[in-house]
Nucleic acid binder design. Structure first.
Lengths: 234, 234
DNA sequence: GTGCTAATCTTGGTATGCCATAAGATGGTC
DNA sequence: GACCATCTTATGGCATACCAAGATTAGCAC
């Protein structure tokens, strides 16, 4: 698969400093649900688990705190941020705005190379759907959207969406895993992709709209059903 | 139980940590332009200036880094984030989406109390316009929008907008100070306010749209004129 | 005089130590 | 037996010490 010049421009030094690695690990662990919502993040414990010093852990926590993934209770230290449906709903609404716009602009701007990249991403998504590996599906979905935002030239919006996704990551994992999602998700993604390949902004936006509305609805049911989604015990 | 009344009793000012103060000071200094774009943020110097240890400074920088106000160059340390027109344009576009939506929802939801608060905010804005005090105008404008977002129930979006505003703060100060802005800004704000008071979502959204489009245009001219607004000297 | 090397200095990254406080345990008193 | 005071410990906030790497400058050799 020939990679377009889109995403390979980053000569970025792979996670160099311990701090960056720590941020990624922690974020990954929180997003993956290894630390439940409300769980305390005890610095010294994390030091042991990560094998780094407290300085590193503390700075990583500050970073995640600014990202909204961690909250700092005044005197009891950092805890994993909790999420209620009110916030989740807002987040889905914001994603709706940003993603429909991105899809439309992507459809407007996509050239041949961009379309090839999108096709590749959809292909990977298809495989992940079939493989039924949650993590791979999650990653492939993320990458699919990354291509859309990148082609649209919406770097900043992508940054925001990623951050928001972090905050609803557990919900997102649940919606992706949801059974009805399995059948319709693939079809919807394909619809988005086709609209972009046809350079049809309206249809692309509308496809994203439907897709996200459905995801939000599933999330609402999930969060609404078990009123207390997670336990705050440590 | 009068839960709502009790919620306001939060006195979270007491456990004010040095770190929080440092973050606020630094952010304020960057937004106010005391540190120009691209300026290096030398830890030990900041330690002296703030009178705190490196731990505090470093954690504050990590926080601002996640906020996008500070960038960390691989080996030369943190610098104040720079802004090119491409990013600024994206930011204005995102604000456009979020703020029109917020204004519309605000117009839908505003009750008598909310409308009174909005009127007060506009009043303060008027006075600030007349007083020609840049800082006061900046604050009053921010507060005006805060009311709109709060009434609309868009906390999360407001958080995002504030963060984005931080990144274009210098541009924003310039557009607010711009002379043509002086005459039309007030009128536009009034138009936004009136539409909301009339509970007219479409007109509110359209008023915000015009307002922001104009601001973006002014910003583009300002940033376009002196092609390289700031020096990245290092 | 020029070019190369080495020492130093600057700066950031990492580790550790000390202190204040809050929560839990323990023991004494009524 | 219950309640209160005190002690202990767990934990976070803050400061400092040490180390590695890059830049700058000085000195030496040619």
């Amino acid at each position: 698969m020939h990679n377009t010049a889109l995403d390979d421009l980053k000569i970025d030094h792979l996670p160099r400093t311990l701090r960056e690695i720590a941020v990624e690990r922690l974020r990954g662990a929180i997003i993956a649900g290894r630390f439940p919502s409300g769980a305390r993040l005890v610095e010294r414990t994390l030091c042991d688990q990560l094998g780094v010093s407290r300085s590193v852990v503390r700075e990583a926590i500050r970073y995640l705190e600014a990202e909204g993934l961690v909250e700092n209770a005044p005197r009891s230290g950092p805890v994993v941020a909790t999420l209620d449906w009110g916030q989740a709903e807002q987040i889905y609404n914001i994603r709706l705005l940003l993603e429909t716009q991105a899809a439309a602009d992507c459809a407007r701007k996509a050239d041949a190379a961009a379309k090839a990249a999108l096709r590749d991403a959809l292909q990977a998504l298809d495989e992940a759907f079939r493989a039924s590996e949650p993590q791979r599906l999650y990653d492939a979905t993320t990458h699919f959207y990354e291509v859309i935002f990148t082609v649209a030239g919406h770097d900043v919006a992508w940054e925001i969406v990623q951050r928001l996704n972090g905050r609803i990551s557990r919900l997102r994992a649940l919606t992706l895993a949801s059974t009805d999602r399995h059948v319709s998700g693939q079809a919807r993604m394909t619809r988005i992709c086709e609209a972009i390949l046809d350079s049809d902004p309206e249809r692309a936006a509308s496809a994203v709209h439907d897709h996200l509305t459905e995801a939000a609805e599933i999330a609402r049911r999930l969060l609404g059903n078990d009123a207390r989604p997670e336990d705050k015990s440590r």
